[in-house]
Simulated scan of single mutants.
Amino acid sequence: MAEPTSPPTGYRLLLPSDWVKIPLRKGDAEQAVREIVASAFARVPADVPRDRLTPLRLELERGLLAAVADARKAKALELYLPMRLSREVNLGASIVVSEALLPSRSGPSGAPAPVSDPAEVAVQLISGGGGTDVDLSSGEVDGALAVRRERVVPADPERGVELASRRVDYLVAVPSDPSRWFAAAFSTMGAGNPKDDLANALVEWFDALMTTFRWSWT
């Protein structure tokens, strides 16, 4: 298969049906939230009293809008959240997709040169940011250089973060554009402990999900 000569225009992930995508770069994220909420509550049995549904619906919408606001602060492109349509949205897990621009460096001639060494990528793109038990590794995702970071981020009550979380970041080099990197950041609190069985299972699930990642040129 020939190497692509132009950067991809998008990507694909094979997400389960109970995960929803909220686009942040195009369209109206708030309208997407309203549609998600309407879809969720359209499946609630008709015999459930409305006075019980209204507070749940408002809470769901507020939670989704708060997640959207946080993702926008991070300049994200898309936000993915797991829906539990029978009851509520589980905001204990999320995937935030964004784009990272790699700072250029000077080559031997003084001209800008791309950074392609995984160790340098790890230092420039995903060093810092807090957390403990940091695990760095590199490999490929759909034929492109990728760096994976896993860590535990402690709770920060002053910022309204009451529980520690498990974070896994994938940074994937964009083909034919060495200065751009695709970034997928997964976060979960597990069942209240970022190292519990649920957190471990969700991290394994996210790693498996990233094996379905494919670039698109359409």
Rank of each mutant, 00 (worst) to 15 (best):
A2C: 06
E3G: 12
P7W: 02
P8F: 04
P8K: 06
G10Q: 05
L14C: 08
L14G: 08
P16D: 05
P16N: 03
S17T: 15
W19C: 07
I22H: 01
K26I: 10
G27N: 09
G27I: 06
R34C: 08
I36F: 02
V37S: 00
V37E: 01
A38K: 14
S39M: 13
A40L: 14
A40K: 11
P45D: 07
P55M: 01
E61K: 09
G63T: 02
L64N: 01
L64E: 03
L64Y: 00
L65F: 09
L65C: 03
A66R: 14
A66N: 14
V68H: 02
D70M: 11
D70Y: 07
D70V: 11
R72T: 07
R72Y: 07
K73P: 02
K75W: 08
K75E: 15
E78G: 06
Y80L: 12
P82F: 02
P82R: 07
S86T: 13
R87E: 15
N90T: 10
A93P: 00
S94I: 07
S94E: 14
I95C: 04
S98L: 08
S98Y: 05
L102R: 02
L102E: 06
S104P: 00
S104I: 04
R105F: 13
R105Y: 08
G107E: 01
G107S: 01
G110D: 06
G110Q: 06
A111E: 14
P114F: 00
S116A: 15
D117V: 11
A119M: 12
V123R: 15
V123F: 12
Q124N: 12
L125F: 08
L125T: 07
G128K: 02
G129V: 05
G131D: 08
T132L: 10
V134L: 10
D135C: 08
L136K: 02
S137A: 14
S137E: 09
S138Q: 07
G139M: 06
V141K: 03
V141I: 15
L145P: 12
V147L: 00
R151E: 13
V152K: 01
V152C: 03
P154C: 05
R159N: 14
G160M: 02
V161S: 06
E162R: 13
A164W: 04
A164N: 02
S165H: 10
V168Y: 03
D169M: 13
A173P: 05
A173I: 01
A173F: 03
P175W: 02
S176W: 01
P178W: 00
A183N: 11
A185T: 12
G192K: 00
K195T: 15
K195Y: 12
K195G: 11
D196A: 06
D197G: 11
A199E: 00
E204C: 02
W205V: 06
F206E: 09
D207K: 13
D207H: 11
L209G: 07
T211V: 10
F213Y: 12
W215C: 04
